[in-house]
Design a protein around this nucleic acid. Sequence first.
DNA 1: TGGTGGTCTTGTCAATGACAAGTTACGATC
DNA 2: GATCGTAACTTGTCATTGACAAGACCACCA
Lengths: 190, 190
Amino acid sequence: MTSYDRGMTSNRPYHHGDLRRALLATTAEAIREAGPAALSLRDLARRAGVSHAAPAHHFGDKAGLLTAFAVEGYDLLAEELGRAGDDLLEIGVAYVRFAVEHRAHFEVMFRPDLYRPDDPALVAARARSGATLHGGVAAHPAASAPDRDALAAWSIVHGFATLWLAGALPPGVGGDPEATARQVIRRLFE
Amino acid sequence: MTSYDRGMTSNRPYHHGDLRRALLATTAEAIREAGPAALSLRDLARRAGVSHAAPAHHFGDKAGLLTAFAVEGYDLLAEELGRAGDDLLEIGVAYVRFAVEHRAHFEVMFRPDLYRPDDPALVAARARSGATLHGGVAAHPAASAPDRDALAAWSIVHGFATLWLAGALPPGVGGDPEATARQVIRRLFE
DNA sequence: TGGTGGTCTTGTCAATGACAAGTTACGATC
DNA sequence: GATCGTAACTTGTCATTGACAAGACCACCA
């Protein structure tokens, strides 16, 4: 029970302290529970224990909040991809793992109608994670046509992750997305 | 200019005649303009020239409308995939073409949080298009591991289509999604 | 100590989804 | 071709939401 969980008549301080960060965390939680379509600024405010207009102060409007959320997602993705090293297979697996573990971020990132895709911070963050992915492809020994290979690799991991998150895969596909993804990606290298 | 384009004080008949179909068509139009997030039942009603509560009569609620819209999408997809014949490459191209030409349907179909994925009509329609896709993979000569190959093929075309629709691909990727998709899919068969 | 600006609140408005209750007209049956 | 059942559509209403305006609070620094 943190300070911003208290009711409004309590001794909760007027200033939250770190409302912006708290709202982004709560956004992930709310989206995980009911999808991005059901996200409500007022619900976020209630969860954070602040007034209904507090979120707008930090993000302007709903699109502003989701823009910041997408930036956070692209930064996280770049970090995870970088951690995967130079092996293209492992980078692909890391991409799928990111989608599964940070599904809320992933679901917003590729829905540009929900935020402002032209926002400078967003463009920069997207470029960073794009460079990381493309770098992994270029380092791959079998890269005869880097551009096309990068697109094929990105497509297959993105498609798998998307279908997994949408629950569109048949029940036969087992419970471990990473292991299944590894099988599928390997198909590209045979 | 059909009868339901007239204002409410005109001689527009009380009964629309084919409101259900008209609403589904208008749904595609509205989603193409502003994405599924901005879809409004009342806006659909205004476009169709009926009262704000008319859509609910045919579809129950917003999720009901989108369920019917997704069913329509899966039926269309099965039809287009069937038309592509037995060649796996052409089936994949047809999948991408469907996503681009019917982007509104495609964007709803893979967003189960927007509708009722358990609806019997939807389950049936999804099974139909799934069978068509899987059948194409089984007919492919190089299918050594049909399940994994089907998943890889579905992933790569779905991923490409999704990235294309999201505008996530770098500007270098040209203006013709079908031709680009063909290159990418071929990568699976080399 | 006094101000200055960022943080947050209260109040309000138009728009929306959902629901209830009433009205209109189609079509089957006699 | 009159009657009646029922489907199609309307009007009215309510709680919720996003956005905005105006003001209250408070940390920080001169």
